[in-house]
Design a protein around this nucleic acid. Structure first.
Lengths: 109, 109
DNA sequence: GACGTTGCTACGTCTGTCGTAGTAAGACTA
DNA sequence: TAGTCTTACTACGACAGACGTAGCAACGTC
């Protein structure tokens, strides 16, 4: 299985996280599992990358956090998307459509 | 006109440059013009980014340089793609196809 | 009793991109 | 004829995002 390097997907981590948070509040471990699943195991986000993305996005007010608990009572930090995060996500989607078309022009075999 | 930020296209600069060099040797100024044209003005590579990409790729032996002259006799550094660069380009194309599919899964409005 | 999973935090490093600046020579414009 | 634009670069330092490594803690499983 060929995996995707972080260099090429860099710039989309935030978008992927926001996509998942749009489905409902979630937390680090779950997000990383879902990214793995949705990408069919082709992209595995690193823990440090993920948690630093959370911090960055919280500072930018794209998400907010609150503490909750796991089923077994362990503490967990949940994240929820904000309205600003929602707009940001939509902008990224538009940008993706442009970017995709541009890159395709440079793809040929 | 909406432009593409370097954050999202980052990771594809080398691929774009290699695509153009596959069409024949070229040099900095020409490459930057062609990127602008091919992207319909949606992506403008910065000079510093471009020249540092040349250096990086030459060190990795993906391209080689030689000096030539412009029509008016001014010195110019030309770059040519190597066999390694050709293989590298093809790997990036394959990776792009994977990446595109993965990102699309996180795109919804 | 050791190992795997869950769920994080801390710290320092590296790479690619960028801002700013400078150089130089021809071309075009007022 | 002076000033600006285009061409064609180089140098230097800053910054952001991703990463490697490490550590901690509680629970479940073998």
């Amino acid at each position: 299985m060929t995996n995707i390097s972080s260099d090429v997907i860099r710039g989309y981590n935030d978008t992927m996280i926001l996509f998942l948070l749009r489905l409902g509040p979630s937390y680090g471990y779950e997000i990383s599992k879902k990214i793995k699943e949705l990408s069919d195991g082709k992209y595995l986000i690193k823990e440090t990358t993920l948690y630093s993305a959370f911090t960055r996005m919280e500072n930018k007010q794209l998400i907010t956090s609150y503490s909750g608990e796991s089923e077994t009572g362990k503490k967990r930090t949940y994240y929820r998307i904000t309205d600003q995060g929602e707009s940001y996500y939509r902008e990224r989607v538009e940008e993706w459509n442009l970017t995709k078309d541009v890159i395709e022009k440079f793809i040929a075999v």
